[in-house]
């Protein structure tokens, strides 16, 4: 326990985890976004077969990859990285809820995800998403970059 506490206090370790999470998310969203656009007809056809998304297949098939690219831009821009993490968390949570619904009610339908992720089973996909959600939560809760305080002596106006 002491060892973990010591390691967690180490900013370098936290920064490595945050950077790793950020780059993994950039890779994930770029890869899935491009795959959805490259094979757009398959992606739209998969959404058409979903009972809850069928009526919005045209909009979703374009909106989803565009949103993924938007998140990538947020993550690339250090100033908006926290917003990028929050948007990633929201997107992955919505995906996971949708997958949970599919597992419970229509497990025979195909996954509307991009690239090699199509090969994953629904339960495999939930585990995959949970890994990324934990990674994002870890990065958000250990984010110390905007919590730097400098104590200033009121009389001397010099940092103490």
């Amino acid at each position: 326990m002491f060892f973990i506490a010591t390691v967690m206090k180490n900013n370098t370790f936290i920064q490595i985890i945050q950077s790793l999470a950020c780059y993994l998310l950039i890779f994930l969203f770029t890869y899935t976004g491009v795959s959805k656009l490259l094979d757009h007809s398959s992606f739209e056809a998969a959404i058409l077969q979903s009972p809850i998304l069928r009526n919005y297949s045209k909009i979703i098939s374009w909106l989803l990859p565009v949103s993924e690219f938007f998140i990538v831009v947020m993550l690339l821009w250090k100033r908006y990285r926290r917003t990028g993490f929050l948007l990633s968390l929201f997107t992955l949570t919505v995906f996971t809820i949708y997958i949970g619904y599919m597992v419970l009610f229509v497990p025979s339908l195909p996954c509307s995800c991009g690239g090699v992720l199509k090969q994953l089973s629904w339960s495999g996909h939930i585990l995959f998403n949970c890994f990324f959600i934990i990674l994002i939560l870890g990065s958000l809760f250990t984010n110390t970059s905007n919590k730097i305080f400098i104590a200033i002596n009121r009389k001397s106006r010099k940092p103490v």
Binding site: T30, V34, L38, G114
Partner: peptide, 20 residues
Amino acid sequence: FFGILVVMLALTASAFTVPH
């Protein structure tokens, strides 16, 4: 530039794995 490198890596990976 590491972020840009990751984006390019993802683009390359998708080009090879999306069925044509």
